[in-house]
């Protein structure tokens, strides 16, 4: 069971449209995603702190904290979490804003499921690429520290770097 959870891509979906949220969640579960759904930004931030996610699908227009603000706050705390913005609005202005804030992609509703799956796949690939690059850099740093410092200092520094990953 633990293995099965570990093998799945962990996905967070945030949308105030409950019917949409449930249906999409169920369909992506069927396609081997580990899905958690929440209906507003505040709940999403709480969940992000307690669980680790690989990807997030966020609706742009929501009551309270809107998608753009949520995106900015998630990106500030979890830099390897790739965010895809969903919106029913047709304007390009918000797409540009979201791209600046670090969204991986911007998908207009309604979409073909294959389209969404492709974007999710690409987003996950992006996450791995960035993470790999970061891991390599960290490994290099760790080796450097191991060569230079005293054993206690080295251990403390390595622990710090290990914790940085989140």
């Amino acid at each position: 069971m633990t293995d099965a959870r570990e093998n799945k891509i962990k996905l967070l979906i945030v949308d105030d449209e409950i019917d949409f949220l449930e249906a999409l969640g169920e369909r992506l579960e069927m396609r081997d995603f580990l899905v958690r759904t929440v209906a507003n930004g505040t709940d999403a931030l709480v969940l992000c702190d307690s669980e680790k996610f690989d990807l997030a699908l966020i609706d742009l227009k929501m009551p309270g904290m809107d998608g753009q603000e949520l995106l900015a706050r998630i990106k500030a705390e979890h830099r390897f979490l790739e965010v895809i913005i969903l919106t029913g609005h047709g304007s390009l202005g918000s797409a540009v804003e979201c791209a600046k804030l670090g969204a991986f992609s911007y998908l207009p509703k309604p979409y073909q499921l294959d389209e969404l799956l492709k974007v999710l796949k690409d987003a996950y690939a992006e996450r791995l690429k960035k993470k790999f690059a970061a891991d390599t850099a960290r490994t290099r740093e760790l080796l450097k520290i191991a060569q230079e410092d005293s054993p206690r200092g080295t251990l403390r520094r390595m622990k710090e770097l290990d914790d940085e990953e989140r």
Binding site: A23, E26, R27, L86, G88, K109, P110
Partner: peptide, 25 residues
Amino acid sequence: LAAGIAHEINNPLAVVSEKAGLVKD
């Protein structure tokens, strides 16, 4: 107006699309 309408209509359409897809699945 078109952008506003699009938003109002696209959201329920997304529900339709997901629910229909779910039933199919």
